[in-house]
Design a protein around this nucleic acid. Structure first.
Lengths: 112, 112
DNA sequence: CGGTATATACCGATCATCGGAGCATTGCAA
DNA sequence: TTGCAATGCTCCGATGATCGGTATATACCG
C-alpha cells in the first residue's frame, strides 16, 4: 500500500475523488480538467482502474442513481485511499525537488 | 516528446544524469539515493531504459572507460532530455498542487 | 574458497494503460 | 426524420515499461 509509484491515470482518478464523490463519467471530465486537457482517459482505463482501486480499498461505491434511464455509479475516496494519495504527493514533491536541484547544477550549453 | 507521463524509474534515471554524466552502475546507486532507498532499479530495467532513452535522443553515450578490466559506459543528458525533464517537473508540480488542493477540501472523517 | 561489490547483457512474465467496439438513452441540428 | 454528439457503463486484445531472474567477468574481503 505504501508501495511503488502510481501511474498518471490512477493518480488523477484519486485526485478527482479527493474533494467529493463522483460518478465514472464525471471523473472522466474532471481528470481532463485537472490535467489541463492533457489526459483524456479511455473508458476502459477508468472502469478497470475503479475496479482495481475498489479491490484495494482506496475507493468505494458511494451510491447509485438512475438519471434519465442511465445508471450513475458514484465512487468516493476512502480514508485509506486519501492516505495513499497523500503519500504519493509527498513522494512526488521530494522527487521533483531533487530533479530541480540537479537541473540547476547542470552545466549550461551541454553538447546536445 | 512532450507526450505522456514518465514512469518513475525513467524519471529518476534522467534526474540522476541531470547534474553530470554517470555510468550505468553509478546511476543505479544514485537512483537509490535520490529516491531515499525506495527505488532499487533492476539491471534489466536500467540498461533497457538507457537504450530507449538513447534512441529517443534524451541521453547519449558520453565516453567509455575501462577500469580494472571492467567497462564503464558513461551517459549524459542531452539538451533535449533536459528539456523533457523540465516539462515533466512542471507537470508533476501542477498535478501535486491539484491533489493537495483537493485533499484539503476533503470533508474530514469520511466513512472509511 | 565463497560471498559481495562492480559492471553490463539478455530474457520471459506481469499488468496498467491504450485503442477500440458495443449497447442504450437524450437532445440537438440538418 | 435522420443522424450525430453527449451521456454512461462494459468488455476485449494489444502495447510496452518494468520486474525478476540468469549469465558473465573481475576484484577484494574474510
Amino acid at each position: 500500500m505504501t508501495d511503488g509509484a502510481l501511474r498518471e491515470p490512477t493518480f488523477l482518478i484519486l485526485t478527482a475523488l479527493a474533494a467529493r464523490p463522483q460518478h465514472g463519467y464525471g471523473i472522466l471530465l474532471d481528470v481532463e480538467e485537472i490535467s489541463e486537457g492533457r489526459v483524456k482517459l479511455r473508458a476502459g482505463t477508468l472502469y478497470t482502474a475503479l475496479d482495481r482501486l475498489s479491490a484495494d480499498g482506496w475507493v468505494a461505491v458511494d451510491r447509485e442513481q438512475v438519471v434519465d434511464g442511465r445508471l450513475r455509479r458514484y465512487y468516493r475516496l476512502t480514508d485509506e485511499g486519501a492516505a495513499r494519495l497523500e503519500i504519493e504527493v509527498q513522494r512526488l514533491r521530494s522527487q521533483t525537488r531533487a530533479a530541480e536541484r540537479r537541473l540547476r547544477l547542470r552545466p549550461a550549453g551541454g553538447t546536445a
